[in-house]
């Protein structure tokens, strides 16, 4: 982010794009992952799928929150307000709410099998609905506001700009994948805490 040249319109403030764009992309990819995992669980009853969902949902929520925050900071410097009812911002907000719903549901349900099923169902339903929500929000936005801000369609970026962006996107994917695996590992250990191999593993590491 530090090496990219300044944008001719926005100066240094545009550098936040290297956080904003990857986070927004990740927020959507994570939901895609959730939905697919939910589908896999409902159809094939794979035991790893709910663990995947449980580990991924907070990461997705964090990503959409980062996208929202960085978006609003960026918005403050370029558009002059913290928040505009822009289609993209609004749909990320909805995405964040969807994530929070799944997390809250999983926390509220004590029964593990029910919590698994519930998260999977919400994931699948969300996956089907997400395109509709996004589409309707974009429609709503163009209907009410018109294209006020064309900042998202800025002139095509020079190489020095999009290359770091690509790197940071890949980096974000890497970080999320790593965190995901780590969370899944501890979740599996927790769920199987009664079985012998876990005890061996933990005690072995402890000594």
């Amino acid at each position: 982010m530090a090496f990219a040249p300044e944008d001719y319109q926005q100066g240094n403030s545009f550098r936040i794009i290297y956080i904003h764009v990857p986070a927004a992309m990740l927020a959507q990819s994570c939901y895609l992952g959730l939905g697919i995992a939910g589908f896999v669980f409902l159809v094939w009853q794979m035991k790893i799928a709910p663990i995947f969902i449980k580990s991924l949902a907070p990461l997705g929520a964090a990503m959409s929150l980062i996208a929202l925050l960085s978006g609003s900071i960026w918005g403050k410097t370029t558009w002059g307000t913290w928040w505009v009812w822009d289609a993209r911002l609004t749909s990320v907000l909805v995405l964040f709410l969807l994530y929070m719903g799944i997390i809250a549901l999983q926390n509220a349900l004590d029964d593990v099998t029910l919590a698994n099923k519930a998260a999977a169902v919400m994931g699948v339903v969300g996956l089907i609905n997400l395109p509709i929500i996004k589409y309707s929000v974009i429609w709503w936005n163009t209907l009410h506001q018109g294209p006020t801000f064309t900042v998202t369609e800025k002139p095509s970026m020079p190489v020095e700009m999009w290359l770091p962006l690509l790197v940071s996107v890949i980096g974000f994917y890497g970080v999320v994948a790593g965190l995901l695996l780590w969370r899944m590992q501890s979740e599996i250990l927790w769920r199987e805490k009664r079985s012998a191999w876990v005890r061996q593993e933990v005690l072995g590491d402890g000594l």
Partner: peptide, 16 residues
């Protein structure tokens, strides 16, 4: 919880 879960899905209906 139901409100939190369901309201986002109601958005398109309300919008249209």
């Amino acid at each position: 919880l139901v409100m939190l879960l369901i309201l986002p899905f109601y958005l398109p209906v309300i919008i249209f």
